[in-house]
Design a protein around this nucleic acid. Structure first.
Lengths: 248, 248
DNA sequence: AAGTGGTCTAGACCACTAT
DNA sequence: TAGTGGTCTAGACCACTTT
């Protein structure tokens, strides 16, 4: 028995709660605790590591947030099985594209004021044929066309946002979190589609190549839509991945 | 001044830390605090709501987790701008499909032992032409073909997982988190592709329709791959969406 | 030195579940 | 009644930044 009372390194830069979360995760990862099993009670863990309840609580909360365990008041803490519905896909690949300012450049293809189509009008909460600013850009990776970006902006001289969106560097800011202080929220949608003839030519691939279309709508702090657009990228150049379960 | 000392409802079922997080979020959402602005210090918030530091800390941690603010030790807490790279796409649509057992059914199309292709062998960490179990199923929504599922399983009589995977109801369990106690982790990949002739026929759409292909690889608690497969669904039937920023 | 975030304590009290 | 998770206190101490 004994089970060794002390395993926490109080001098570590890793906080006690993080150490405990890590140790618990390892015990689950190793198969010592299987899905459905009950973890030791929080009081037990307090005693085992010589920490106070709040510290254990925080560690357990981390595991809950990660979807690794679930607590049931009055009963205990139990290991959860894999849950595919919890999978989350991130835009890492796209983000790294824009982050690397050395190899990526943006070329303006088109920029004009046009009447809004039905789809655009619906997305921007305006009426069809209202004027919008239409911008098409090409993102180049190592001077090769990589993806295409279409944006449709509300045409309103009183709003300064337009200027920022016109800026060729604004795409970088959107991904890095710098700037864009006038946008409150955004809605993103991944679609699967075929490249149009013009898009295929721009991107230098065969027409009708399968592609991702990442739609985005942005809203200002008055919850009014300010822009609608989409990134288009041949499918072989991009993919969205997610890890679910325990990856050490 | 005054600024009203008490705004926390101690009798509410919503914990104090959650109430504070909600109030802070509202202040940001309303535009009172803009991206780049500094929030009141934690000590100030303690006084304003009459709670202890730990409670405020937990509220602030919630906002950090949501990507709404960032803290800088010794300086303060600051509101962050929109960060596209933080967008996360969930499998809500697929999950709800499988969750509804009333309208969704699974039909087994094919089930046989075949030699592994190069791609399958690579994914399952075996050598090409090793035998694998190949299963093709069709998911029906309201008795109409909705999506197709191919799975390739390690052929090993000593592992009982095969039986579970063969079960036509196993797909439901994967999404709901029930069962599947033998799978430790999974890797998912969204691709954009074209339907093959057979797939198009099965799904009753035109050939060469653009479609999503959701690949999945599952691993057991020894980190060995146990299955590789993919869901295929015409793009107009499915999309992946994400919300970023502040949605009240 | 003063102000900021960050961790942690050693309890207290409550709600829920089982026996 | 006893054991479980869940919240909260009223401080303490530390690390970092600014003045």
């Amino acid at each position: 028995m004994a089970e060794t009372i002390q395993k926490i390194d109080r001098d570590s830069y890793e906080p006690a709660y993080a150490q405990i979360a890590r140790l618990l995760t390892q015990e689950i990862s190793s198969g010592k605790f299987r899905p459905g099993d009950q973890l030791p009670s929080e009081a037990t863990i307090c005693g085992r590591y010589g920490v106070s309840p709040m510290t254990v609580r925080r560690a357990v909360n981390m595991l809950i947030d990660q979807g690794l365990v679930a607590t049931r008041q009055g009963k205990g803490t139990f290991v959860k099985g894999l849950e595919l519905g919890r999978s989350t896909f991130a835009l890492d690949e796209l983000q790294s594209l824009f982050r690397d300012k050395e190899t990526s450049r943006v070329r303006l293809i088109r920029s004009r004021i046009v009447p809004a189509s039905e789809e655009i009008a619906r997305s921007l909460d305006i009426t069809a044929n209202d004027r919008v600013i239409y911008i098409r850009r090409l993102l180049l990776k190592n001077d090769e066309p990589f993806l295409c970006h279409d944006a449709h902006l509300i045409y309103d001289p009183t709003r300064p946002i337009v200027e920022a969106e016109m800026d060729l560097t604004s795409l970088h800011g959107l991904f890095s979190g710098t700037g864009e202080t006038d946008i409150k929220k955004g809605l993103l949608l991944i679609r699967s589609t075929l490249l149009s003839a013009e898009e295929a030519a721009l991107l230098r691939v065969a027409p009708s190549t399968p592609a991702f279309r990442l739609e985005h709508t942005f809203f200002d702090f008055n919850d009014r839509p300010v822009s609608f657009g989409y990134f288009i990228c041949p499918s072989e150049r991009l993919s969205f991945s997610a890890k679910v379960g325990i990856w050490d």
